[in-house]
Amino acid sequence: MADTIKGRGSRQYLPGRFETTTVEAADDGWAPLAEPEAGPDPSRPRTEVHEESARSIVTRNRSPDVGFSQSVNPYRGCEHGCSYCFARPSHAYLNLSPGLDFETKIFAKTNAPELLRREFARPGYRPSPIALGINTDAYQPVERRLELTRRLVEVMLECRHPFSLVTKNALVERDLDLLQPLAALGLVHVYFSVTTLDPQLSARLEPRAAAPHARLRAMRRLHDAGVPVGVLFAPAIPWVNDHELEAVLEAARGAGAASAGYVLLRLPHEVAPLFRDWLEAHMPERAARVMAAVRQMRGGRDYESGFGARMRGRGPYADLLERRFALARRRAGYPAQSLAALDCSRFVPPLAAPAQRELF
């Protein structure tokens, strides 16, 4: 097995579940293997950004486990490289590896803002809050250059459309000039995913995400600017970061968070072998214990996909984690009521939307 790769969450090109063949070079003894051509160091794979034109941009779901019915994802793949990312298996649909390909081959939907505006202009469109970047982080590093998320937020502001977003990147601060007027109209919530307060553990779990202190600083700055903020302790991983639950909720509350939630580690499809490999690379002494605890909460398997259980798990550990969260939330002083509901009544279709300057 390859050594760990600096700045990457995975260390292998695990084939996707739809692959019918895999290729591996082997020396059959008849002739020496061809010398590889000079090129990029394979131990340090570079990020490739591929621009694509999407056919649609709004995804709809009826899952009872999530608090939204519409989502928008401007990117496929995520350079943050979180070893546990539940979205990794989606790269298998592209005939790419959910391992290193997921975090090094990023697909940008360059026409996303135009598609969103077109969706809002449909005569039969009825607004409901949109979750922005819920599958992969809308503020991942490539956003600094492409600004697709910023342009989507501009459409939200133009049309007075409510939305929420979850991010691990302090880059969200860049768009305060848009988020502030949206917040004044009750149209936006921003959640920060904080998995740990330990920068060394964060650098291994989520190598290209913002450091924990940077996320908390960004949370404080958004809060001070009047933007409602919350925290997600996600994922909770037994014997890895679960002991930090109370500390994360307290630190986030101190940074202005008015809402808190948590999600148990999810290991669908190729994520399970990838995460087991991560454990063997970074925490070999506790790898077996971690996976034993995971299976205890998943009915003896690596993962259960059923509604209700997939986010929280079941069994004694899952019950204990739920009780710990409820107690930590109360002790940290979170309001009894979560963030105020987003306002859908202000929506104006694009062609009739007033100019942004009229907000001021």
Rank of each mutant, 00 (worst) to 15 (best):
N95S: 15
N95R: 11
L96D: 06
L96W: 13
S97W: 09
S97H: 12
S97R: 13
P98M: 05
P98V: 12
G99D: 14
G99Q: 14
G99T: 00
G99R: 03
G99I: 01
L100K: 02
L100I: 12
L100A: 07
L100H: 10
F102R: 05
F102K: 08
F102Q: 11
F102D: 13
E103L: 11
E103M: 12
E103N: 01
E103R: 02
E103G: 05
E103I: 03
E103W: 07
T104H: 08
T104D: 09
K105F: 09
K105T: 01
K105A: 03
I106H: 05
I106F: 06
I106V: 12
I106W: 08
F107I: 13
F107M: 04
F107Q: 02
F107L: 07
F107R: 11
A108R: 08
A108F: 08
K109N: 10
K109S: 08
T110K: 10
T110A: 10
T110N: 00
T110C: 08
T110R: 15
T110H: 01
T110L: 06
T110Y: 03
N111Q: 03
N111V: 12
N111C: 04
A112D: 10
A112S: 01
P113H: 11
P113F: 03
E114P: 01
E114L: 15
E114Q: 10
E114D: 02
E114I: 07
L115E: 00
L115T: 02
L115W: 04
L116E: 01
L116R: 05
L116G: 14
R117A: 15
R118L: 04
R118S: 04
R118T: 08
R118V: 01
R118G: 05
E119G: 06
E119F: 13
F120I: 09
F120L: 14
A121R: 07
A121N: 15
A121C: 14
R122C: 10
P123K: 05
P123L: 03
P123A: 00
G124F: 03
G124Y: 11
Y125F: 14
Y125T: 01
Y125K: 02
